[in-house]
Design a protein around this nucleic acid. Structure first.
Lengths: 236, 236
DNA sequence: GACAGATGAGATGTCCGATGACTCTGTAGG
DNA sequence: CCTACAGAGTCATCGGACATCTCATCTGTC
């Protein structure tokens, strides 16, 4: 086993066995090097690995701390990597997203409060009132994020946020059929919001699932559009 | 921005923009240090971060390569961290697992082949025939993994594998009511397998969902049992 | 000519030492 | 009582040196 692996698994074991608990400051690098039997450089590489996985948090000048180890934080570590996935992988994630968005919408319908309902409709109506792509994108995010939040499961909320961030990178509204997509999207959102307002989990799930499926279809169109443009430009 | 961040985002940008593609060997450390303007130590820490996220793979003596960037690999990076989550977080993950296992079972029912059906029943019957906890645990894993595989979505398969690995750490069959749990678990598995054999996605989803809910209940019992034991032992 | 082993360049892995930058605390001064 | 500052402790960064591994090439033998 390499020195970095030794340090990585050593630290991980300290957390797994409860010797280091959430929020605690871990011993300084000098002490850990001695205990784990590795050099400072190797230890630091192991620390960075755990930091990338959101398990520990180094703070310059203060020390290195174990994170709160919330599942939503751990899941959030995927946010730095999903942007790098090729398109074939993105489609697999859409299948997950469809199922999970449906569940989140159903839970939101069951757990709704009057205040949150007002927020959802505000976002939806603001979205209907604008055509600016970046505004639409931001409001779309707020709309779905609020629904996920009401669902009551921060881990699910975080995971859906990761999926959605990747999709937002594509501006499907800039397509020739953008206006049509925008209208269809508005209708989807209203269907979801209405179902939630009616406290109808089944209808909310169905509407959310359909919305994701539509998004997937539009994304396909967008991608074939840009690849076509690439093909033409590179054939010059 | 710190030197490590500069190297991390620099590398990530090279992959995101397609300058480095999946499977390709990245330039040697010396060249990257010069281009990114950081020392070799800082670059190595950034490389380790991306390696922890399964984006690149250093190979001693050969070079560092961009991974295949399959979503199932990226999701697999969670396997090193879910073991560290506290119990409160585990319950949130069970809600996701319930939904996703149900979907995987439904998909398996729709995409079943005769050969895979045989494998599923073999695992199930072997499980029914043994009481040894470690055997049961291994067969339980094989049973569910095969169903997830048939589902046809490697990303979902990988994510469910991550969730299941954490649950397997608890040996619920060692409880006083272990035999009862074992029988109930066997019945759950038979219900899932039968629904899949009947190509009934709805029944398969319902059975899988119920099974996860049962697992969650038993886990609760197990945890209150061990914490009770802890309370008694520490009060001596 | 074909195969096996030796060899060398090139790459990552590891360690060491020194210095810089930042945080926090305790203390002296107002 | 509050502020300002000095110092210790900690992480951040750099440069260099050597070890270890991989792979392509060369070389010798058969």
């Amino acid at each position: 086993m390499s020195a970095v692996d030794k340090a990585f698994h050593g630290l991980r074991h300290m957390i797994a066995t409860g010797r280091l608990v959430a929020g605690q400051r871990i011993p300084p690098e000098k002490d850990l090097c001695e205990e784990l039997g590795v050099s400072r450089g190797s230890l630091r590489e192991a620390v960075r690995m755990l930091a990338a996985l959101r398990v520990i948090e180094p703070r310059h000048g203060s020390g290195t701390y174990v994170s709160q180890l919330r599942p939503e934080d751990i899941v959030g570590s995927l946010s730095l990597t999903v942007d790098l996935l090729p398109l074939t992988g993105l489609l697999q994630m859409y299948e997950l997203r469809r199922v999970l968005e449906a569940h989140a919408a159903a839970q939101a319908a069951a757990r709704l409060t009057p205040e949150t309902l007002r927020v959802i409709f505000e976002h939806m109506e603001a979205m209907e009132a604008t055509e600016d792509p970046s505004n639409v994108s931001a409001l779309d995010h707020s709309f779905h994020a609020e629904i996920a939040r009401i669902g009551g499961n921060p881990t699910l909320e975080s995971l859906l946020g990761v999926f959605r961030a990747r999709s937002r990178a594509y501006q499907v509204f800039t397509l020739p059929e953008g206006p049509h997509i925008k209208r269809a999207s508005d209708e989807d959102h209203r269907a979801i919001a209405t179902a939630i307002a009616n406290r109808d989990p089944v209808a909310a799930a169905a509407a959310a699932s359909a919305h994701v499926a539509h998004t997937e279809k539009w994304l396909h169109a967008f991608l074939s559009h840009v690849t076509e443009a690439d093909r033409l430009s590179t054939s010059d």
